[in-house]
């Protein structure tokens, strides 16, 4: 039974090997690369990876290379439709520019989240630090 169960995890990712994937991580990072290997925990090996930062309708790319990603940090991975990718309405901007707007947006978001979490906590809701760290 056990070997059968492990088998089911692998079948779901085996079709994606050697394809160009978008991987979203728990800290909000988006990586684009070629899936070369994986295991039953969804640990991944990505080749020719770039990190793409999105803010509004703009994005910027940082070349990163090979990644070994621990499965627990993976939110989702998806195959990129190369035709749809070409039709993208987003515009590419230089890395320095996107990092700057990302920093500004993040500061605003952290400020907003702090207030929200305090309000919700006053209302008896459970908003803990761990959740606050997961800004994906």
């Amino acid at each position: 039974m056990d070997s059968f169960q492990i088998f089911t995890t692998s079948t779901s990712l085996v079709d994606s090997v050697d394809k160009k994937l978008l991987v979203v991580l728990r800290d909000g990072r988006k990586l684009i690369g070629i899936l070369r290997s994986f295991d039953q925990f969804a640990n991944l090996v990505l080749q020719d990876t770039i990190e793409r930062i999105y803010v509004g309708d703009a994005y910027g790319d940082i070349p990163r290379g090979i990644f070994i990603i621990r499965g627990e940090n993976v939110v989702l991975l998806g195959e990129i439709d190369l035709d749809k990718e070409d039709e993208s309405p987003l515009r590419e901007v230089p890395v320095e520019e996107i990092l700057q707007v990302q920093r500004e947006e993040m500061e605003l978001r952290v400020k907003r989240e702090k207030i929200k979490n305090r309000m919700l906590s006053d209302q008896g809701f459970s908003v803990d630090q761990a959740e606050f760290g997961d800004l994906y």
């Binding site: 978008l22 988006k30 999105y54 309708d57 989702l76 998806g78 990129i80 439709d81 987003l90």
Partner: peptide, 13 residues
């Protein structure tokens, strides 16, 4: 979620 626009299928943990 503009990063999802070109994604056709996905594996969700």
């Amino acid at each position: 979620y503009p990063h999802m626009l070109a994604v056709k299928n996905c594996f969700i943990r």
